[in-house]
Simulated assay, not measured.
Amino acid sequence: MRHLLTGLANVVLLLANTLILIGPLLLIALGKFVLPGQAARDACSRGVMWAAEFWAENCKRIFALLTPTRWDIRGNAELRQDCSYLVISNHQSWVDIPALVQAFNRKTPYFKFFLKQELIWVPFLGLAFWALDYPFMKRYSRAFLEKNPHMKGKDLEITKAACEKFKRLPVTVVNYLEGTRFTPAKQAQQQSPYRYLLKPKAGGVAFVLAALGEQLDAVLDVTLVYPDQQVPGFWDLLSGQVAKVIVDIRTLPLDPTLCRGDYENDPAFRQQMQDWVSALWQAKDARIADLRHDAQP
């Protein structure tokens, strides 16, 4: 009963926080379309970011008030809001997003996610995602692409267009290289060579680097670990059943050569990018094993 009441209280407070702030956020976002001049539109973009950060900070306060979750955040002390970052993270649960909020809100520019297109229909949040210029990606099956080859590469076109919007202000772009949440079933289906990860996809991050390379100050290699044996769901977090979340952040220098190649048309560069991603993923898999081992009583 205690977990149920905790979860319901969290839902009520988080919903109230969203309903109170969605109006001002959308009103400011509307200014991006009706106000003349790029300076005015950029000011509206900053206003939208401020509203989103305020909303996220309230969410952090709600979780701190009602849940016992310990957020073990490592490596974010030197981050700055006037810099731009590319965040590369593993992805296991809907709890990953609150974990990133805990680690980065008001430490870096408010982050941008590449989202499934279906999320635009989520009540209230879909409008907020639109106002925040989150790119919506539509996934196509291999069978669909074989029948409709003209749709191949559409996600990469969306990535390019989204990154053009990000160039005028500091930004934190979050990229889940696995493309989907980790599950043992997906791991087996992929025959993933990693113990705790799915196979990474290099194409999306290659286009982000190509579009924003000169603007980015660093790559943030984020490793999310849930020390309990079972990966928690979002309700587990809301109901106070997540004891600890580890957010391990490594700040990596950006190799300029990764920002200058043609991933689509240059096989040598494509291999270089894939090798870089594979090395990151091998190190991350080992890092997860170490963090899980160290967290055991």
Rank of each mutant, 00 (worst) to 15 (best):
G126F: 02
Y85P: 14
I73T: 12
D42Q: 12
P123G: 00
D133N: 15
L86Y: 06
R41L: 04
Y140T: 09
A29G: 15
A131T: 07
L119V: 01
W94G: 13
M49C: 03
P98A: 03
R106L: 03
L25C: 13
L65T: 11
N58V: 01
V101L: 11
Q38V: 05
T69G: 13
W130A: 11
I88L: 15
N105Y: 00
I22M: 13
M49Y: 00
Q102P: 06
Y134K: 04
T67I: 04
L19Y: 05
H91R: 12
L30H: 07
S89E: 07
L125W: 05
L30I: 11
W130I: 09
G47I: 00
V122M: 05
I97R: 07
L15H: 06
G75N: 08
P24C: 06
C83Q: 15
I120R: 11
Q102D: 03
L27I: 14
N105T: 14
P68H: 06
W130F: 10
L21V: 09
R74L: 11
T69S: 11
G47V: 00
L132G: 09
L13C: 14
L79G: 11
T69W: 07
P68G: 09
L132D: 05
A77V: 07
S93Q: 05
T108L: 03
E57D: 06
G75Q: 06
F104G: 03
G126D: 02
D96K: 08
A43E: 02
N17S: 13
K32S: 11
I20K: 06
V11Y: 11
D72L: 10
A77N: 13
L119P: 03
L19S: 12
A131K: 07
P24Q: 06
E53Y: 00
W71G: 12
V11E: 04
Q38R: 14
K60A: 02
N76C: 12
A143E: 15
A56E: 02
Y134T: 03
I22N: 08
L19A: 15
K107M: 01
D82G: 12
T18G: 14
G31H: 06
V122L: 09
T108A: 03
F63H: 08
N10M: 12
S45F: 00
D96G: 09
L15S: 15
I97K: 08
Y85I: 10
L15F: 13
I62N: 04
I73L: 11
I73C: 09
R142V: 09
C59H: 01
F111I: 00
I73K: 10
P135I: 03
V12P: 09
V122Q: 01
M137I: 14
W50G: 00
P123Q: 00
A77H: 13
K112R: 09
K138C: 09
L35F: 10
L30P: 11
F136I: 09
L119N: 01
I88Q: 13
A39G: 08
H91C: 12
Q117I: 00
I22A: 15
K107L: 02
S89V: 10
A39V: 04
V12K: 10
L65Q: 07
D42E: 11
C59T: 03
L66D: 06
Y134D: 05
I62S: 04
Y85W: 10
A143K: 13
R61L: 07
V122E: 01
W130Y: 10
L27T: 15
Y110S: 06
S141N: 10
Q92K: 15
L27M: 10
W50R: 07
Y134W: 08
W121A: 05
A128Q: 05
V95F: 07
A29D: 14
